[in-house]
Design a protein around this nucleic acid. Structure first.
Length: 238
DNA sequence: AGCACA
């Protein structure tokens, strides 16, 4: 039972990203889906052959990285499930901040004539903006692959396009609308929870717009009300 | 598959 490979780190390493996604778009979207777990200091991605399909998200603290890793594991992103690990080493931004940064050997670049920056600039993580429209482009509403250690399987469900209404499945039968409200109202734009008496185990949750619904889905995907019941969230059919 | 520091 491998619990994951690396030891906890403020930075998560993500691979299996869609390599067709353009860099700025990718970074913005990563920022958009991960900032719910805590303050993000930096998002890094590179287009070089060796680093395509990979990214690093640097959080302000490890607990954010840990919940991001757990909650977003396997999350469908540009039509591919994210694979997330802790980064193997400390990010430079962090090392610079805590004084442990030592400049590494130059990469093998024949040209290194300009050593430029001598003052570190602090990235203000607030300028990320809403990059979520990008997410909607890919068909992103399909039921995500469930890979929860609890072993519950997802209910097969036809892919639905983004919607302001989320469809929640695999709830324990004792779930009440109030319980769901407490969970879902944490996310901006929350409007209401609807449950159908005749159909236990499912619910509908509505948000003001699709972007808000998407954030809530990402945040609560797989959330377990009981150990046996990781919730499965998809967009409701229109 | 591939762990960097635009």
């Amino acid at each position: 039972m491998s619990t994951g490979d690396a030891t906890p780190n403020m930075t998560i390493y993500i691979n299996n990203l869609n390599e067709k996604t353009k860099m700025e778009e990718l970074k913005k979207s990563l920022y958009a889906v991960f900032s719910q777990f805590g303050k993000i200091i930096e998002v890094l991605a590179f287009k070089t052959l060796k680093h395509k399909g990979q990214a690093w998200v640097v959080f302000e603290d490890v607990s954010s990285a840990t919940s991001a890793l757990k909650q977003m594991q396997g999350f469908p992103f540009y039509e591919k499930p994210m694979r997330i690990q802790y980064a193997k080493t400390k990010s430079d931004v962090i090392a610079k901040a805590d004084g442990s940064f030592v400049p590494r050997e130059r990469r093998k670049r024949h040209e290194e004539r300009a050593e430029k920056k001598r003052r570190e600039q602090h990235h203000d993580a607030n300028q990320a903006g809403m990059g979520l429209s990008a997410l909607y482009a890919g068909s992103y509403g399909a039921a995500p692959p469930m890979m929860y250690p609890g072993g519950a399987k997802s209910v097969p469900e036809a892919p639905a396009p983004p919607n302001t209404i989320l469809f929640i499945q695999n709830l324990p039968h004792e779930t009440t609308p109030m319980m769901l409200q407490m969970l879902f109202c944490q996310y901006p734009g929350f409007k209401e929870v609807r449950m159908v008496e005749a159909k236990p185990g499912i619910a509908f949750v509505e948000y003001g717009d699709e972007m808000q619904a998407t954030i809530a889905m990402a945040g609560l995907q797989g959330f377990k009300i009981t150990q046996q019941n990781p919730m499965v969230i998809t967009y409701a059919k229109k």
